[in-house]
């Protein structure tokens, strides 16, 4: 059996197996409240009339349709969003939440629906060019990460880099670059990073590949991603939906949905539609 075929069969099998709890009495009577930021383009955005739309909105709606889930989407600010899930204000989060060890201690995750990776972004007018463009730096591998960090730090020494608070990227800056002369400025809202980057308050920003891709889609003539793509370690393993610790019922239902849309290529289509490229896993 080829790898793909095996994955397909596996997906179909698990979908069949996991469809059972999804259709069980508990799940059908339950409205699943899902929180998102509504301000993290193109993953989730808000129209003037308050309606949410974007890649992740399409994603959860598709899963809900296939798994017969009754869902309700609400918008929440990012700071406090995970706390809100722990507190039981809602059942799940879909907001580009990267799967990391620290977060796994307090919430459970579904399979990842993006492949992960983070990159620096700069405005062309700033004249900053990071080395090792297009390469991948693996945080778990010292041979790969150490030279990448050295090279990046040499260029960013004395420069200000903006990042959203309490994200994997802010943890990365703090652990790898802050003591090498890079000034880190943290923002409660992710969109403020791009705001300040585009008017020149900060010299560079760092965010997930998907997030940067969205910014570049609108500002590709003025800005560029630069330097290596950082993956692994504290950079996590892509984004997943977060559910309350121990809510295996919901976790399994969502996983079944994800497996189904990965298997038939729907997820890749959605990625192409919203990001202009495939940033999603091709198989589980």
């Amino acid at each position: 059996m080829t790898k793909t075929a095996r994955a397909l069969v596996g997906a179909a099998l698990s979908a069949a197996l996991l469809a059972a709890p999804a259709a069980s009495a508990d799940m059908t009577g339950r409205t699943i409240v899902i929180a998102t930021e509504g301000a993290f383009p193109p993953s989730n955005m808000t129209r003037p009339n308050g309606e949410l739309y974007g890649f992740e909105i399409d994603l959860v709606n598709e899963i809900a349709k296939r798994e017969n889930l009754k869902i309700e989407l609400i918008s929440q600010a990012w700071d406090g969003m995970i706390q809100g899930l722990i507190d039981g204000k809602y059942d799940a989060i879909v907001d580009g939440v990267s799967i990391t060890g620290a977060r796994k201690e307090v919430v459970d995750f579904t399979h990842p629906y993006t492949t992960g990776g983070s990159t620096f972004v700069v405005m062309n007018s700033a004249g900053i060019d990071l080395p090792m463009n297009g390469t991948t730096a693996q945080l778990d591998d010292p041979v790969s990460i150490d030279p990448a960090v050295e090279a990046v730090a040499a260029v960013l020494d004395g420069k200000t880099v903006g990042v959203q608070q309490a994200t994997i990227q802010s943890a990365f800056l703090e652990e790898y670059l802050q003591d090498k002369g890079v000034k880190v400025r943290t923002y409660p809202n992710g969109s403020d990073v791009y705001q300040d980057l585009s008017i020149g308050r900060i010299d560079a920003g760092i965010a997930s590949l998907t997030n940067v891709a969205a910014f570049l889609e609108k500002n590709g003539d003025k800005a560029a991603a630069t330097g290596p793509t950082f993956i692994g370690g504290i950079m996590g393993a892509g984004s997943g939906l977060a559910v309350q610790k121990g809510d295996t019922e919901l976790q399994e239902a969502l996983n079944a949905g994800l497996e189904s849309i990965v298997a038939d290529g729907t997820l890749a289509e959605l990625s192409q539609k919203w990001f202009g490229l495939v940033v999603t896993p091709q198989q589980y």
């Binding site: 700071d79 406090g80 995970i82 706390q83 608070q165 309490a166 943290t186 409660p188």
Partner: peptide, 9 residues
């Protein structure tokens, strides 16, 4: 304080 809350809940 806000950053600490975002990190440690």
């Amino acid at each position: 304080a806000r950053e600490a809350v975002a990190e440690t809940w």
